[in-house]
């Protein structure tokens, strides 16, 4: 599955547009991570635990979107967008969405 956040690909043609596909996940931090983040917050800088948590979530959202796209017979998702929303205490939703297409190389 090819992914891209553009819709224009020199050397390729989109032969089929299969519609919107999306993947999302909601993750909550766990207590240990939050505690460490609280300590880290005193000195500032990167909160590695949270970075990992959110990038794992983003990967999972992508995987779910890819699962939708393969189910409809696409080989690529174009115009992929991400969004992160902070829902309720200590939980974040990561959403990935795009258009499932069939992309073929121009001969």
């Amino acid at each position: 599955m090819r992914l891209s956040n553009t819709e224009y690909f020199p050397g390729y043609v989109i032969t089929k547009h299969l519609g919107l596909v999306q993947g999302s996940t909601v993750r909550a931090k766990h207590v240990g991570r939050d505690f460490m983040a609280g300590l880290k917050n005193i000195v500032g800088g990167e909160l590695k635990g949270y970075t990992e948590l959110l990038s794992e979530s983003r990967q999972e959202a992508l995987d779910r979107m890819i699962a939708q796209a393969s189910a409809v017979g696409a080989n690529a998702i174009v115009n992929v967008r991400f969004s992160t929303a902070n829902i309720a205490m200590g939980a974040a939703e990561i959403l990935a969405y795009g258009t499932a297409v069939v992309l073929t190389k121009r001969e």
Partner: peptide
């Protein structure tokens, strides 16, 4: 910009991303 120049015509492409969660120290 959205479109790469013609030189990349038909080449491999993929979505890449990078992320980081940052916080500010207590004093700041």
């Amino acid at each position: 910009e959205k479109a790469p120049p013609a030189r990349f015509s038909g080449q491999e492409f993929a979505l890449v991303s990078g992320s980081v969660v940052m916080s500010c120290d207590y004093f700041r």
